[in-house]
Design a protein around this nucleic acid. Structure first.
Lengths: 345, 345
DNA sequence: TTGTAAGCGTTATCAC
DNA sequence: GTGATAACGCTTACAA
């Protein structure tokens, strides 16, 4: 008898679609349809197939499916870094929304390096992803070329550049800088400084700076930008900035930090030096990291719609693929950042 | 002339291995070897192929490769949640190490639900991953069955259960609980309470509790466990716990919180009520979340080797696959947690 | 609603 | 070192 498993040369001896079909007494394509368009299979066969699938413990081979259909149920996402508190919510919202519809997340981090981003995109493309999600509009020319030719939905998140070709989901960093400056000015602060991020590749942070600078100029004030040493750990960079700015005379009345990590460092350095915050100097961050409300004084900050970006990105992807209904997929998605006023301003 | 692209029925019109082969005047398999075992291709052809690859902008189709070789260059990882600060470093270390060797990360989160974990594992298996990485040893029976039959390296992280079949990379949560109790006892604290996590599925946290309980018993003390309302936000749950424990008489002299989020809530609630920390009541957390050092007083905690776990997991995966050299892949990997003493104890 | 046949783009196998 | 050929397991196209 040839009952014994032949242990073909290849394949792990997995249960295949054909095995299910044979067992259920139907053709392979019917089983395929059972998974992809169940309505198009008669209820009786559906039942029979379901039974066999359970009995054999069949798991569809998505690789084979992806090859045959030249479009896998997989979506690639590149973010600057996973471990920072800022992007984690975006990943989470994105991943969860996708997986609820049977799509998987392929993830890589760029560390704000366009070269690493390009490598990730190239690798992803090898998996025939259904879509690609990137962060910001800063890419290498190689990346630009690949996404232009990819012929799949591409989304840029955490940014908003209406003129660009890819779908946009995010906000204007320039506007965030402007909002920060306006907010502090409205509260009566005049000598307002801005502390840059210590991560050199964080170009979006520079756009926030530019928005700040333009706005204070509109108020007839002089921009005051401090740049910590490059690549210093953010918390330390914040301390460095605060120490330097405190020694200036006159001191700034308020400081905008490029993100909450820097701001937290600044806050502590200020307190350690006996500064009263916000009386002597107000502090405003960006990101609304989880610890912002736990600090003493709690940190005022600008909260980006991180989770929302992730969920919306997934939604747009699924709409583009026809998985979710939509008359016309919205290409431009401008979300709002929110000033979270706490004790430090 | 048939120069014009035929636009076959299928396929996105991508450049294929065959196209490269034709252009370079070699066979397809040679181009395949060029990518997978370059040494086995003569230098001249290597050069010729390289040129054509660049010219055509060929990107290997990993889906096709995965199907043919029945093992894709992709690794699945399931973690409880992405956005918590605790696992982010593990993901980062894992992903980075993998991608440095051409492997991609397929990520999903379980939210401490074994059912969601099972779904993720099933979906991953459809991609013929080269390996699978899970968190803790708590799985559904379905998951257990799948990983037993998967015939690929499976790693359990953030835990250490020598008796189990899968590779182990992590530490004993029970020991962490014991260490916490011992540490506080050594510092002279006697009435030591433990605050559980509010997330019901976090079974590892219960093991820490058990380690704590057994240890204080050894010291002749009575365990004192407080359980916040289930599913309360951790920060709020910590507050709730602290408020409840402060009203007990006698009050605890020290409190171990199941994680730093809870501890931060406890810290703030205590201070707001006028409690001096650590004089009136010491506070110890777990996780060494980024904000721990930013709190006032800074939070003493137990730091798990999060990044190390990720890097080591990737290393073991790559060793198992023969990508990295290794005589025998180490199945048990016990890492150390570290007591980080700050101002709160 | 169901089935047949022909790929999808790569790698394993075996032969030279 | 190189190549011809046959898989890998599924889905598209077309037919019934």
């Amino acid at each position: 008898m040839s009952q014994e498993k032949p242990r073909k040369r290849r394949g792990a001896g997995r249960v295949t679609l054909n095995a299910v079909a044979r067992q259920a007494g139907v053709s392979a394509i019917t089983v395929s349809r059972y998974f992809n368009q169940p309505e198009s299979v008669s209820p009786e066969r559906r039942e029979r197939i379901a039974a066999v699938v359970a009995e054999l413990g069949y798991v569809p081979n998505l690789v084979a499916g992806g090859l045959a259909s030249s479009r896998g149920k997989i979506v690639g996402m590149v973010i600057p870094n996973i471990s920072g508190p800022i992007f984690a919510n975006t990943i989470q919202g994105f991943s969860d929304t996708l997986s609820r519809h049977g799509y998987q997340l392929l993830l890589a981090s760029s560390y704000f390096s366009t070269e690493q981003e390009e490598n990730a995109v190239r690798a992803f493309l090898g998996w025939s992803p259904a879509a690609l999600v990137l962060t910001s509009h800063f890419h290498s020319s190689g990346t630009e070329k690949m996404i232009a030719e990819a012929d799949i939905p591409v989304i840029e998140t955490w940014d908003y550049q209406p003129d660009r070709e890819p779908m946009q989901i995010g906000f204007s960093h320039y506007e965030v800088g402007a909002t920060a400056a306006r907010y502090l000015h409205d509260k009566g602060y005049r000598r307002i400084a801005f502390v840059q991020n210590s991560a050199p590749g964080d170009l979006s942070a520079l756009e926030r700076r530019d928005g700040y600078a333009a706005t204070v100029r509109e108020f007839g004030l002089e921009p005051w930008v401090f740049a910590p040493d490059a690549d210093r750990a953010p918390f330390e960079a914040g301390k460095q900035a605060m120490e330097a700015l405190m020694n200036a005379s006159p001191r700034p009345e308020a400081i905008i930090f490029a993100n909450d990590n820097l701001a937290a460092g600044g806050l502590l350095a200020g307190q350690r030096a006996g500064l009263k915050i916000p009386e002597d100097c107000a502090v405003l961050g960006f990101g609304d990291y989880p610890f912002a409300e736990m600090l003493l004084p709690s940190l005022s900050t600008i909260k980006p719609p991180a989770l929302e970006i992730g969920v919306l990105a997934a939604t747009r992807v699924l709409e583009s693929l026809g998985v979710l209904p939509s008359d016309e997929v919205q290409r431009l998605n401008l979300l709002q950042c929110q000033v979270i006023e706490r004790e430090s301003t």
